[in-house]
Structure formats: structure tokens, C-alpha cells
């Protein structure tokens, strides 16, 4: 994995990531006409810290606590049977549930759309939100399903062989988005 990213190019630095999140927080509030009934759910791994940051920014703008949680779509994936069983990541639904709420799904990279499809199915078993919106830090294109994001931090046109890697200080020690170029199968492609 690290070998594949031997010469990655930084397309967003820490300040860019922060600005994109602030803008998207404002967009979410504007679209929702306030912060009432919002539930922000991150998709592991890196969607979870992004969701927390987004919620903090919404709180800073609107002055209300926004429930934050995590939703792991692993068991709902369409490729579950194509690979060895994967370890599950935590799912953490805020106490108020999602019924009749506006759920904001947050992920780091939007690629094929299959993860989001799985997350939507997972959400079905938890409750019935009034609306579901999607926030992603990076949209790299190459959708395989009719899914789009409501709020995008940065659109990065990519080729299939390229890799997009999001680094977050909570997990990786720094904030950045890296664009790598290799022919080999990479993490981003392995988990679209």
C-alpha cells in the first residue's frame, strides 16, 4: 500500500480540508433550514471523524448540539461473498434514533457508490429517516450506481488506475488528500 503511494500528489492540504468542511456545514444548514432534526452519521473509517467535525461546525454556526454517530455498512455490501469475511467496524446510532430525522451520511471518498448503497440499506433496518443526504470530502467519479452526493468538498476527476487517499489527523496524524498513480490494485479501489 505504501509502495503504491510512492509519489502521491497532494491535492488538498489541511487548510483546504478545513475550509471544505466549513463550507459543507453551512450548506447542510442552509439546505435543512437550520440544524433541527439533523443526525450526522459517518461511514467507517474516515467518514466517522469527518462526521464529528462536520457536526462541530454545524454546532458552531447554529448553536445547537447535533447528534453524531457511525454506521458500518459491511454486512450489507454486495461484495461480501467475493472476499474473506471482514472485521466489522462500530455502528453507533445516537439515542434519539433516525425516525423522521434528516440523516446526513458522511464519507471520505465517493467512488462506485456501492458503499453508500450498502449504508442506505443498513439505514433501512435502523429506522425511517424523513430525508437522507450525502456529504463527501472527495468525489472522484466512476459511479456504478445511480447515486450522487448532496455536498462535495472537492470534485477530483480521476482515472480508474489512480488512487485517492484521504488522511485525517485523528487516524493518520495529518489532514490531506493525496492523489496517487499506480497500475496496481490499491486500497481506494479495493474498498470503493
Amino acid at each position: 500500500m505504501s509502495r503504491d503511494l510512492s509519489s502521491p500528489r497532494e491535492v488538498l492540504d489541511g487548510d483546504d480540508v478545513a475550509r471544505a468542511l466549513t463550507r459543507m456545514a453551512h450548506e447542510v444548514v442552509e439546505r435543512n433550514k437550520g440544524a433541527s432534526d439533523l443526525v450526522v452519521l459517518g461511514i467507517p473509517k474516515r467518514g466517522v471523524p469527518l462526521a464529528r467535525r462536520l457536526a462541530e461546525r454545524i454546532t458552531a454556526v447554529e448553536g445547537v448540539e447535533v447528534p453524531v454517530g457511525a454506521i458500518d455498512p459491511t454486512m450489507y455490501r454486495d461484495d461480501l461473498r467475493l472476499r474473506p469475511a471482514r472485521a466489522l467496524e462500530p455502528t453507533d446510532i445516537p439515542a434519539g434514533g433516525v425516525d423522521d430525522k434528516t440523516v446526513v451520511l458522511v464519507d471520505d471518498v465517493l467512488f462506485s457508490g456501492r458503499t453508500i448503497r450498502a449504508a442506505l440499506t443498513a439505514l433501512d433496518d435502523i429506522g425511517r429517516p424523513r430525508t437522507v443526504r450525502l456529504v463527501v470530502l472527495v468525489d472522484r467519479g466512476h459511479r456504478q450506481l445511480p447515486i450522487r452526493a448532496d455536498h462535495v468538498g472537492k470534485n477530483i476527476p480521476t482515472a480508474m488506475h489512480e488512487t485517492v487517499r484521504v488522511l485525517l489527523s485523528d487516524i493518520d496524524g495529518q489532514d490531506a488528500v493525496l492523489l496517487g498513480s499506480t497500475g496496481a490494485e490499491t486500497e481506494a479501489e479495493a474498498a470503493p
Partner: peptide, 11 residues
């Protein structure tokens, strides 16, 4: 059951 049966290693 999940770890043993859900994935592809099984097949």
C-alpha cells in the same frame, strides 16, 4: 458464523 460463513474464503 459471520466470520466463518459470510466471506469468500469459505468458498
Amino acid at each position: 458464523l459471520y466470520l466463518m460463513l459470510a466471506g469468500a474464503a469459505n468458498d
